[in-house]
Amino acid sequence: MTDVSIIRGKVVVITGGARGIGLSTAKALQKLGAKIAIGDIDETAVKESGAASDFEHYGPLDVTDQRSFNDFLDEVERQLGPIDVLINNAGIMPTGKLIDEPDALTRRILDINVYGVILGSKLALARMLPRHSGHIINIASLAGETHIPGLATYNASKHAVLGFSDTLREEYRGSGVAISSVLPTLTNTDLGSGVTAPKLLRAAEPEEIATAIVQMLASRRSKVRVTTVAGVISQIVGLLPQSVGDAIGRSLGSQRAFLDDVDATARKKYEDRVRGTEE
């Protein structure tokens, strides 16, 4: 049994913490005695979530802006002390065919999902390495181990997060700073709204991802896939010849899940928000 008592008193920063996986993780860690700081680009939502849960620190954070990110971390350390854990959770997942994706949206996906993770990791390492202590957790996706029509740029961003995290893990081995990645399947959050999981799979609940992160912090494990079944399928398919793996994906319905099978009405609010077209 993993000893989660070591989480008590830890200063934890979570990006994209106003909702979904970020908020569920913040709540789970707060229950274990961690000092929580959440940041989010949605200033109204982060203030509402932070106040409702009585987190120690909460406020606006743009992970694509170096000054915003650095100032946020500085303020957390002034208020709560040295940061023990950074969870790079902020990310967006617009759906649709690449040819229909505006260039500005392509850049936005990469800026948030990739550059935001790199920037956050860099800023956290600068604080953690001199203390020989700390843990950086990057929220990737099982999409980073496979290819799903309708998510081309998102897939690319999560492949990048995995490669980046695995490289940092070796680059800073022995430094006292742990680098980990979490690979969720489709999750029941706003990000997954209007999408039905492919056959044989089920969407995860954000609380399941939060539980995996709690266990990861306690064990300093480098990688975890959620759900277990989805993770096993992803790994097996990855070992098969390409034609066989692609055929399995088609048989499960993955080629339609994020295109023809999307409930556009149910997904509209999320798509408008991440595309910046909210009224």
Rank of each mutant, 00 (worst) to 15 (best):
I6L: 15
A152G: 11
R221N: 10
I36P: 00
H135V: 02
T153F: 04
I99M: 12
G249M: 10
S53A: 15
G33M: 05
P206S: 06
T44V: 15
D260F: 05
L168K: 13
D260K: 09
N138W: 03
R225Y: 13
Q66W: 11
I36F: 06
S222G: 09
A37T: 07
P149Q: 00
L191F: 08
V274P: 00
Q66R: 14
K269R: 09
S243Y: 15
L252A: 04
A124L: 12
I118K: 12
A204Y: 13
G192I: 03
A37F: 03
D272N: 11
A212F: 00
Q235F: 14
T189E: 10
A152C: 12
L191V: 11
V262D: 01
Q79K: 15
I38E: 08
V12C: 12
L123C: 08
R19Y: 10
D166S: 12
L259E: 03
Q30L: 14
R267M: 08
M216H: 01
R78H: 13
A126T: 13
S133D: 06
G174F: 05
E170S: 14
K268T: 14
D103W: 09
T15R: 05
K122S: 12
I38P: 01
N138H: 01
T277Q: 07
L119Q: 02
L142F: 07
K97I: 15
E56I: 05
L32E: 11
P94Y: 08
N70Y: 12
S5G: 01
R8H: 10
I112H: 03
E208G: 10
A28N: 10
I148P: 12
I248M: 09
K268S: 12
L23T: 05
L32S: 02
I7W: 06
A212R: 00
G59P: 11
A257Y: 09
S157G: 11
A26G: 14
R173A: 14
L200K: 10
G116W: 05
N138E: 05
Q235Y: 13
I38H: 08
L240D: 06
I112R: 02
T167Y: 07
R131M: 00
V177R: 02
T265A: 15
Q30H: 13
L80D: 03
G194S: 08
S165H: 10
L259V: 11
I7H: 05
A18C: 07
K122G: 05
T277V: 10
R19F: 12
L201A: 05
E271F: 01
I233S: 00
I213E: 07
R78I: 07
